[in-house]
Each structure stands twice: as structure tokens, then as C-alpha cells.
Amino acid sequence: MTATATAAPARGAGRPHYGTHLFLIVMAVMWLIPLLWTLYAALRPKAVTDKYGYWSLHGPINLDNFTNAWTQGGMATYFGNTLTITVPSVLLTLLLASMMAFAVSRFTWKFNLTLLVLFTAGNMLPPQVLAAPLFEMFKHTPLPYSISSSGTLLDTYYAVIAVEVAFQMGFCTFVLSNYMKALPGGLTEAAQVDGASVWQQYSRIIMPLTRPALAALGTLEVVWLYNDYFWPLLFIHSGDRLPITTGITNLQGQFLLDYNMIAAGATITVIPTLVVYLALQRHFVAGLTLGASKG
């Protein structure tokens, strides 16, 4: 005689969640309305909005504002400056944070937890608290004029990259260390028995297994550092070295009343982060859901 066991359906399974769906739809609409209206304003000529107002639906739409914002606003230069800051900052942050996470998660030593707490506690300080000390420190840090026109760390990309890496390492170390602790300890123990060095354990065993977490953190870091406004504005004084987030203010100052062009410039700045998120969306979601369930 055989017995067939049927799993009981989970509680609430199949029940329609009208309230949840309604809430999500309302929130999505609330987020989309300003974005879509900004895009619509960017597509309208300034003369039309001056005549009918920004909340009207009259007149033609075209891409002239985007063309003017790109050429007259010098946005190609600002995008290049942003890449110069963002790419090294993200790569250095993930590299150093992964090394630190490997040390505190795979090895047991006296100051293991203390060091992790110190790294994480650095994220609790508001950036504005350290603005004046960092400014003075960079101001009195000499550099050769061949790599710095000011003779100091001020007005250089090095200052912004160093601060971005320092502030982001704590969060990335915390996330990566928790993920690495979830990996089986037998992996590195077996590698150690086979004669693998610490570097080989890190680079050939642990790092390939942390790709989902690195992809999720990389996506977040690109968005955060790309949109950072405070540190570049504080340390970079030359207009031709500003990143896109601070450089867009020059467009506003030059065309103060042309809000259509400003809307077009703001829309252009969103495109790179949107492309990065869409390209890494699968890895980003997988990284966020790691450890959510147990098999």
C-alpha cells in the first residue's frame, strides 16, 4: 500500500492582494509623474512653454533642447570627468573592501570584530563633519605641479577618489564580510591543505563565489558615486574638471530662465545610471536576495 502526501498550500497562497497592488500602483505613478513631466518639458520648445505654460499640452515636441544642452553645456567634458572619478572609485572600493572582508570573515584573530566595527562606524559620520578637516589636510598636502596645477591635493581627482573610497569601504566591507561568512569554511580549508596561499584562496576560491554580491554592490556604488554632489563641489574648483552633477549647475547659471534646456540636461544625466542598472539588473536582484531562503 502506498500513501500519497499532498503538501498543504501556504497560508494566503492564491489569495488576491488588491491592497498591495493598489499601493504599489499608486507609488509607481507618484514616482513616474515628475519624471515623465520633466521629459515632456525637455521635449517642448521654450517659446511654447512661455506662451502656454509648463502645465499645458499645446505645441510641438522635438529634440532641440537635448542637442543644445549637450553642445552648449559642454556635457561631453563633464561626462568624461565623471568617468574619471567614478570608475577608479568603484574598482578601488570593491577591491579593498573585498580584501578586508576576506580577512575578517575567513580568519580568526584578536581584533577581528573590532576592526570590522571601526570600518562600519565610519559610515555613521555625516560627511559635513569631516569637510573642513579634509579640506585643510588636502590644502596642505603638496603634490608636484606636473600632476596638480594647484601644487596640492585640492582641485584634483585624487582628492575626490580618495574620499569616496574611504567613505564607501565601510558599507561594502560589512556587506561582503556577511556574505563571505555564509560560504562553507571547508572551501578554504581544503585549499589550504592542498597548499594554496592566502592570495590564491582569496582570488581563485572566494572572489569567484562573490560575483553576485560584487555585482549588486557595484551597481549601488556606480549610482551613488555618479550622483555624488558634495565632495566634487568641495574639492574641485576648476570648471573644466567638474563631474556631471556639479557641471549641470553651469548650464543652469548660463541659461537661468530656460528650464526646458535644464530639464533636457537633467534627463541626459540620468541615462548612464539607468543603462548600468538595466545591464546589471539580474545580478543586482540576485545579490539582494542572497540568503533570503535556505535550501
Rank of each mutant, 00 (worst) to 15 (best):
A8R: 11
P9M: 10
P9E: 08
P9T: 14
A10L: 14
A10I: 13
G12I: 09
G12Q: 09
A13S: 09
A13D: 06
G14N: 05
P16G: 03
Y18N: 12
Y18P: 10
Y18V: 09
G19C: 14
L22W: 10
L22C: 12
L24Y: 11
V26A: 06
M27V: 14
M27W: 07
M27C: 13
V29R: 01
M30A: 03
M30V: 13
W31N: 07
L32S: 03
I33N: 01
P34M: 01
L35D: 04
L35R: 08
L36S: 15
L36G: 12
W37S: 05
W37N: 04
T38P: 03
L39R: 04
L39E: 00
A41S: 11
A41Q: 11
A42R: 13
A42Y: 02
L43V: 00
R44A: 05
P45K: 08
P45Q: 03
P45W: 04
K46F: 01
A47W: 12
A47R: 14
D50S: 12
D50R: 14
G53E: 00
W55H: 13
S56C: 14
S56Q: 15
L57Y: 11
G59W: 05
G59M: 08
P60S: 13
I61D: 02
N62I: 03
N62P: 03
L63Y: 11
D64W: 14
N65G: 03
F66K: 00
T67P: 01
T67G: 06
A69M: 08
T71E: 06
G73I: 00
G74F: 15
M75Y: 08
M75S: 02
A76H: 08
F79I: 12
F79A: 09
L83V: 10
L83I: 13
L83D: 00
L83W: 09
T84Y: 13
I85W: 09
I85R: 12
T86M: 01
T86Y: 01
T86L: 04
T86D: 00
L91R: 04
L92H: 07
T93G: 09
T93V: 15
L95H: 06
L96R: 02
L96E: 02
A97T: 11
A97D: 00
S98E: 01
S98Y: 15
S98N: 04
F102D: 00
R106N: 05
T108V: 08
T108R: 15
W109T: 01
K110M: 15
F111M: 08
N112Q: 14
L113K: 11
T114F: 08
T114S: 09
L115H: 02
L115A: 13
L115T: 09
L116M: 00
V117D: 07
